[in-house]
Nucleic acid binder design. Structure first.
Length: 581
RNA sequence: GGUCCCGUAGCUCAGUUGGAUAGAGCAGCUGCCUUCUAAGCAGUAGGUCGGGGGUUCGAAUCCUCCCGGGAUCGCCA
């Protein structure tokens, strides 16, 4: 259900009829024809660029096409006025019934109103968070988690079959560091004094793990050399960290479909297989890279390495996949992992990274392009940093001392809903300010509050209407006499509701869930505005004493607003509230 | 030095596969409200879209060259 699509289909039909009638040449490409809301609502409800887009290929003046098209569009029962304006725009105003009926459609369809078939029959893999299993999730991860999760939900809403996935970096050197740090805590659990040299994890979240190691293994490793305990301690502590991370994610309302272990790629021939696939395409060779331009790293010396010819797929330089000592670089398992994703048959892949990984975008895309012969698109979304504030003051955290603000700190202080919504009030690639006090503020300045408040107001008015004896179920309201919704302020809200399906598609196509949050703010704003006008104009109040028909129609509109807000918040992973407290 | 991201109103930011006179919220200014529809409302003002050049019916949007801010830069993940 998408009015803009419906009208575009109408325009295309009329164009075809015009071609049949010989008004315009046959066989014109109409792909660029769009139907959009005009910037200025005075121009109408919708505008199409058809005449301007087709003028050149048709060899006609835009107006010549537009005049005929306008006349033909005006014949449609939904269209009130179709007129040519400006350089050749065709403005369309729909009859009020179209907008009134839309309210009924929303109530009939419920949360499905706004769903799109954009991704129907296609599978997409969204990989996000993928934090190293070396400690609790912090605020930076939180943004990626919220973004990735909302994006996944958005794509689901747009019809995609979505897999949410977490890649566990449990194969590299950092889990050895974790193991040594946990071992330190194990020693401490035996009342031994230990050093915390640079490059270990001194955070106290490993204290428990040390205790658990003691409980499990007693004192058998107290004097043992590293080779004896490293593997077991690494596995034990990485598992403990993943349990903690899973719990952190659950606090935020994030549930993954799949946790994929990097370690599972080693010793199983899977890295080798992925590299072999590239080798067969002639993309693996031994060579020596040029030093980086500009400043030369001090310890740089030419070495022959095994390289992936990523430049053949859009990268700037070829990338090493094997170190000079014969071990894989981190890039090799990443290739194997993405090869696995491609092999699982996804139609599209999305990776959500922190902005500090921006340098890996090209090589990762090159790898997927090579492995899938350009058939599987990989979109990589980068999330910028989160700057923390407390009551307007920057909130410093010391990573070196092992105390940083964790996801759990944030969620416990402000709640998962507020956290999630606020994290989506900025575009992913813009830095985000997060103020512990401001996000809880109950004022118009706070989008979370503002949107929730609109939803709560609807439910407040539903309760009042119910008390006045009105049947406020969606089924009953859908049958209300919606022609009573004739005021401009009411129709404006209906217009905004009509934008919802279109917005979902745009957001899904661009992989930008923040657009949902911005839309909800606008819808809430229109609703509040209508509500406030009821102060001065009693005729605009939702509950009309002694007039059940009018009340039903107005309540239907309010309820439709709540349906859309609820659907939007659902995508963002935020629970709508029915009253403010 | 290479690459990527960002640069839009005083501030924080939106801006639809290129669409009409570039939007919102704060702050400012002018009125209104003192309410059980509490956690304000209505209006007004505010811009060389970092700068130059190009592409075209039409550019904040695409290309190119500069300027400014950030991230990153072979054997760290």
């Amino acid at each position: 259900m998408n009015l803009f699509q419906d009208l575009r289909a109408l325009v295309i039909t009329k164009l075809a009829a015009m071609a049949d009638a010989g008004v315009i040449p046959a066989g014109l490409d109409t792909a660029a024809v769009s139907v959009e809301p005009p910037r200025d609502p005075l121009h109408g409800d919708m505008a199409t660029n058809a005449a301007m887009v087709l003028a050149k290929p048709a060899g006609m003046a835009p107006r010549a096409i537009a005049d005929v098209l306008a006349a033909r569009l005006a014949a449609d029962p939904r269209v009130a006025i179709a007129e040519v304006a400006g350089p050749g725009f065709l403005n369309i105003r729909l009859k009020p019934q179209v907008w009134q009926n839309l309210v009924g459609t929303v109530l009939t369809m419920g949360q499905d109103f706004g769903k799109s078939d954009l991704g129907v029959g296609k599978r997409v893999n969204v990989e996000y968070v993928s934090a190293n299993p070396t400690g609790p999730l912090h605020v930076g991860h939180t943004r990626g988690a919220v973004f990735g999760d909302a994006l996944a939900s958005l794509l689901q809403y747009a019809g995609w079959d979505v897999t949410r996935e977490y890649y566990i970096n449990d194969g590299g050197a950092q889990v050895n560091v974790l193991a040594r740090s946990a071992f330190n805590r194990y020693l401490e659990a035996h009342d031994l004094t230990v050093d915390w040299p640079e490059g270990t994890y001194p955070g106290d979240y490993l204290v428990e793990v040390g205790e658990a190691l003691k409980a499990k293994y007693g004192d058998r490793w107290l004097d043992a050399p590293e080779e004896e305990w490293l593997d077991e301690v690494r596995e034990f502590s990485a598992n403990a960290m993943m349990d903690m991370i899973r719990e952190d994610l659950a606090q935020l309302g994030v549930k993954m479909d799949m946790f994929y272990s990097e370690k599972s790629l080693y010793g199983t021939g899977r890295i080798e297989a992925a590299i072999e696939a590239l080798r067969e395409k002639g993309l693996i060779y031994k060579g020596t890279l040029e030093p980086p331009k500009g400043k030369l790293p001090e310890d740089w010396e030419p070495r022959e390495q095994t390289l992936f010819r990523s430049t053949a797929h859009g990268d700037d330089v070829d990338r090493p996949i094997m170190k000079s000592d014969g071990a894989w670089t981190y890039f090799a398992p990443d290739i194997a992992y993405h090869y696995d994703k491609v092999s699982r048959g996804f139609d599209a892949l999305i990776d959500v990274f922190g902005a500090d990984h921006g340098g890996y975008v090209k090589r990762m895309k090159a790898a997927v392009s090579a492995l899938s012969d350009g058939k599987v698109p990989l979109d990589i979304k980068l999330c910028q940093l989160v700057k923390l504030f407390k009551n307007g003051e920057p909130f410093k955290m010391s990573k070196r001392a092992g105390n940083f603000v964790t996801l759990r700190d944030v969620v416990e202080q402000v709640g998962p809903g507020v956290t999630r919504f606020h994290m989506l009030t900025r575009k992913n690639d813009a830095p985000l300010d997060f103020d512990f006090d401001k996000v809880l503020e109950q004022s118009k300045d706070n989008p979370v509050f503002y949107v929730q408040y609109a939803h709560a107001r609807v439910h407040s008015v539903l309760r009042r209407a119910r008390d006045a004896g009105v049947d406020v179920s969606e089924v009953a309201l859908a049958k209300a006499d919606l022609s009573k919704l004739s005021h401009d302020a009411e129709l404006k809200v209906a217009h905004q509701i009509g934008e919802w399906p279109r917005l979902v598609e745009i957001a899904a196509r661009t992989n930008e869930p923040h657009r949902i949050a911005f839309y909800l703010y606008e819808l809430a704003s229109d609703f509040h505005s209508l509500w406030n006008r009821g102060n001065d104009e009693p005729a605009l109040r939702f509950v009309q004493e002694g007039d059940t028909d009018t009340t039903s129609a107005k309540i239907a509109l309010a309820r439709a607003v709540a349906v859309v807000i609820s659907a939007g918040l659902g995508i963002l992973g935020v629970e709508p509230v029915e009253e403010m407290r």
